[in-house]
Design a protein around this nucleic acid. Structure first.
Lengths: 147, 147
DNA sequence: GTAACTGCAAAATATTTGCATCCTT
DNA sequence: AAGGATGCAAATATTTTGCAGTTAC
């Protein structure tokens, strides 16, 4: 079985899946490699396109759901309907906390994890307790600002 | 024409719509009154339910879209697929800036605008410029913490 | 060999569009 | 009266479900 045109060694894909007690299959390796090779967050549609005709649409849905449940990827809410998914540094190490800032470029449309920018502490009104803080910043990304 | 079981005076509904150069219709008044009467953000489905069988599903879609375009309501991205809409204090005054924090209760599921909690300034990496900062906090709300 | 995963078909949902009719201004 | 808004029908798009066949372990 080949490693599906990627820079990511197959062993690494295996490791990540195994660590999450998932069986290693072509579709999971392929989809995981898409995330590992992408700097940006991916929407369901992106994954279908990038994976080619190789996998059933339903398999993509199920794989993404499994990955989210196992903490391999996380969802990023965006103002337009399209949920995006991203695998981030922290997630790879096994402990899932996506308390970093997400950036959506209004020019190129890319959604980017800013792993190094941590969500700020926010004072909540009396009675509210926070579990998770999601920050999505819309603006112009590095690449687009160069033009 | 009656004012559709609401605490909001019809004149106020008219004013808001007129100010946005929208013609005053039953569906718009009804949907606007739902927002004015609700402390929480509403999803498309909520609105259909609360409006009863009175309006066509398509009208709800079109009305929400119009309201967003005119800045009467704004969208709140959430991690689950469901976009929610809310009319906030600032919006009523005509200038649309939703730079406040949104709170999603993991217990009761409500989405709440915390109008008084302002989004923090966030240091971005070199090259990135911010236009809008969306903050969504998941946690337990005031009401649910009382139990 | 067994449990888990995939693909296919189809159902269930959600959203968009076109057009004739009705309502607001 | 004219333009805009609505409702209905239907086209699309999206997501979920059931099940039989296949694959990983």
């Amino acid at each position: 079985m080949n490693i599906l045109e990627t820079k990511i060694p197959g062993s690494r894909l295996n490791d990540i899946l195994r660590r999450k007690h998932l069986s290693v299959t072509d579709s999971r390796k392929k989809i995981l490699s898409l995330f590992l090779n992408s700097k940006d967050a991916l929407a369901h549609g992106d994954i279908e396109k990038k994976a080619g005709e190789k996998f059933d649409r339903v398999t993509v849905y199920r794989t993404l759901q499994t990955f989210v449940e196992k903490g391999i990827i996380h969802t990023i809410p965006t103002a337009d309907n399209s949920i995006r998914y991203a695998l981030c540094k922290e997630c790879e190490e096994g402990h899932h906390h996506d308390e970093h800032v997400h950036f959506v470029c209004t020019n190129c449309g890319r959604t980017i994890c800013l792993d190094d920018v941590v969500s700020p502490k926010i004072e909540l009104p009396e009675g509210y307790t926070a579990q998770e803080v999601q920050v999505v910043i819309n603006g112009v990304c590095k690449d687009c600002n160069h033009d």
